[in-house]
């Protein structure tokens, strides 16, 4: 299950992409994002294999959220290519093989492979837990209400909220709201799930229940996950790989044992010791 093993399984030279075996599910290729003169993602490269759990850590403002938001198409990028399952997200190939900016239809097709959970939950306040979960399957996937409800109930049971189906977000604790948000994202059957500091808005005693759900998700499903987190303990136990972000680039990455146990870069060491001190 370790990174080492994963690497051993795949030859060093990339197999011809057509055979598909080592095709990354998500690929950032020289992705750059700027806000005015501020470069937030700086020619960033990242490949995530199917089923891989990647934790993203790093100082505030280093571009961690921007990475997830660009992948979710909540932000445009200024340069480079993002691919999901071998297809570019913001561009599409013409018949002649050229890449042109993607139209809405192409973007929606690719975006459907990605789900996201936000720090601030962002549940729909006018819908109860079950309605929150079935809204997109019914409206976007065209699922029947009965089918969506049945799946919705299963998903809410999976996150431990089978007795809260009719509760509105205002009637749920933060931890419960976040679990509804996870169920809501899963209801769209994404291949990749993005978690952006999903426990940061929660009281410490409520973090555990959300992390448990994520942990369980990782074990039960072959779901690919990208997770921005400040909880080093969780990253260490859960992730296959940890990426340390610094100034819009991946400054250092490796297995949790490597990165936490034996960081090579000075920045990484400084960041980790600062985090340790804070706890």
């Amino acid at each position: 299950m370790s990174m080492q093993q994963r690497f051993d399984d795949s030859p060093m030279v990339r197999p011809s992409r057509r055979d598909g075996s080592a095709e990354p599910l998500v690929r950032f290729d020289q992705v750059t994002k700027r806000y005015g003169s501020l470069t937030v993602l700086d020619q960033l490269n990242l490949e995530v294999s199917p089923g891989e759990k990647v934790a993203i850590i790093g100082p505030s403002g280093s571009g961690k959220s921007t990475l997830l938001r660009a992948l979710m198409t909540l932000e445009t990028i200024d340069d480079g290519v993002i691919e999901v399952d071998g297809e570019p997200l913001t561009h599409m190939p013409t018949a002649g093989g050229h890449l042109i900016p993607a139209n809405a239809r192409h973007q929606r097709r690719i975006r459907g492979r990605i789900g996201m959970v936000f720090q601030s939950f962002n549940l729909f306040p006018h819908m109860n837990a079950l309605q929150n979960v079935i809204e997109a399957p019914v409206q976007v996937l065209g699922m029947s209400k009965a089918e969506a409800s049945q799946r919705g109930e299963e998903l809410l049971a999976m996150v431990g909220l089978e007795d809260k189906l009719g509760h509105y977000p205002a009637q749920l604790s933060g931890g419960q709201q976040q679990r509804v948000a996870i169920a809501r994202a899963l209801a769209m059957r994404p291949k990749v799930m993005l978690f952006d500091e999903v426990t940061s808005a929660l009281d410490p005693e409520l973090c555990g229940e959300v992390l448990n759900v994520i942990r369980q998700l990782g074990e039960a499903h072959n779901l690919t996950m990208l997770m921005v987190t400040h909880q080093m303990g969780f990253a260490r136990e859960f992730a296959d790989r940890v990426c340390f972000f610094y100034k819009g680039r991946i400054h250092e990455q490796g297995t949790p044992e490597e990165l936490f146990g034996n960081p090579r870069e000075e920045r990484t060491q400084a960041f980790l010791s600062a985090v340790n001190e804070a706890h």
Partner: peptide
């Protein structure tokens, strides 16, 4: 704004 972002992440069309 989070409501727009959540809707987009759930792949809703602008009309929906």
């Amino acid at each position: 704004p989070g409501q727009y972002e959540a809707s987009l992440a759930l792949n809703m069309t602008p009309l929906t």
